[in-house]
Nucleic acid binder design. Structure first.
Lengths: 206, 206
DNA sequence: CGAACAATTGAATCCTTTCAAAGGGAGTGG
DNA sequence: CCACTCCCTTTGAAAGGATTCAATTGTTCG
């Protein structure tokens, strides 16, 4: 296809599969699980979630995708449904023979998800989740926007909305975070949060 | 079982990175998390596990790899440590520019892991795990070999060895499976097992 | 302002973990 | 060949944590 395209925002434009920008509204489906994977996408703005539905109706949110993240790079059939949870712009690209790097990023994203689940307790999972969101959400790392609902977080972490809510409350009670409305919070003690995530826990005491 | 073929056993030999066969004994490390990813591997025989260690010592087994599976296809640093849990032969390949398909398989493997974690209860997780093992272990699908220990299964599913053991016992009590020693079991009622893996929740009865 | 939906909180239940101990193979040495 | 040990697995009972059920509070938007 064409090689020089201004649309590509980042510097790793090894590929010639120039993308076209597509805009989605909150709630729009970007692609569906089981459809043939004709395109892969890079998030430019907004947040996208990917989810799989089980037979009993319960869903599993396999990931949240922020600007710079790649989604749908798999070949064959899409393994999950992707949906915009805020207004979002995505770069849509045709599948091309060599998109190694995007596959790599998709793989890393999957491994991040696996990492989250490696944590056992609700506190560990939520803390690790908040840290990963803080890293990616772009703002000053202390302010964390939560564009997704508690239900989304719960389905991502394998918890219930009640447990998610309680755990957030508990973190606020300990002054590790501060809530500023349901969709925005501030990290007060980053190292304590990392501690809760289980990353720095040499000896167990309280 | 495994037939003797030329170096590349399957037909997808797009790549010129012809592999050399390497043999590992039970317990041998194949590569370590954090090392530079110089090679990627395809399992020819045996079973390999990949795991990540958290700072507090607890580990998470991110996957089990059977013949045909690809491991270590990521670029940069290895994201997990790979270890043979039976005597195993692997095809070692140099990283080459285009290994799209192997990345794809690695991605699918990661997504399989994510899928497992989408299940909530111990019963759901273990049932889904047994089904995935049964599909991949190659034998007649009713006989399932478990080359890994209960501890490995527990760390893979985010449970304890006690819960794993209890859940297996419970499945046997219901005659959904039959155990023939700790490392071998037979699936008696495949549809019931699938039911346990996905549809158990709606209405609880005895 | 009120309706509809989202989030929080309380109390009881259920499930998993933890603590503790017994059973079962495989391998070693007498 | 058998006794013994070690390690893995299984099982029991109590404790802890997440879910469920139920209700309240908070937020958004017409």
């Amino acid at each position: 296809m064409v090689e020089e395209v201004t649309v590509l925002s980042h510097e790793r434009s090894l590929d010639r599969c120039a993308g076209t920008t597509v805009a989605f509204n909150r709630g729009d489906i970007i692609f569906r699980q089981g459809d043939f994977a004709r395109h892969w996408f890079e998030v430019v703005s907004g947040v996208v979630r990917s989810c799989r539905f089980h037979v009993d109706g319960h869903r599993h949110l396999t990931g949240f995708f922020y600007p710079g993240d790649v989604i749908g790079a798999e070949s064959g059939l899409y393994q999950a449904t992707a949906e915009a949870i805020t207004r979002a712009e995505l770069l849509r690209n045709d599948q091309c023979s060599s998109h190694t790097e995007h596959l790599n990023r998709a793989l890393r994203s999957a491994q991040q998800c696996i990492y989250l689940f490696g944590h056992r307790s609700a506190m560990e999972r939520l803390s690790a989740f908040l840290l990963s969101i803080a890293q990616r959400s772009g703002r000053q790392s202390t302010e964390v926007a939560l564009p997704m609902s508690r239900a989304d977080i719960a389905d991502h972490l394998g918890l219930t909305i009640h447990t998610v809510s309680r755990t957030i409350t508990e973190l606020a009670r300990r002054s590790i975070i501060a809530t500023e409305g349901p969709r925005l919070l501030r990290i007060i003690d980053m190292s304590a949060l990392a501690h809760c995530a289980g990353e720095t826990e040499p000896h167990p005491n309280s």
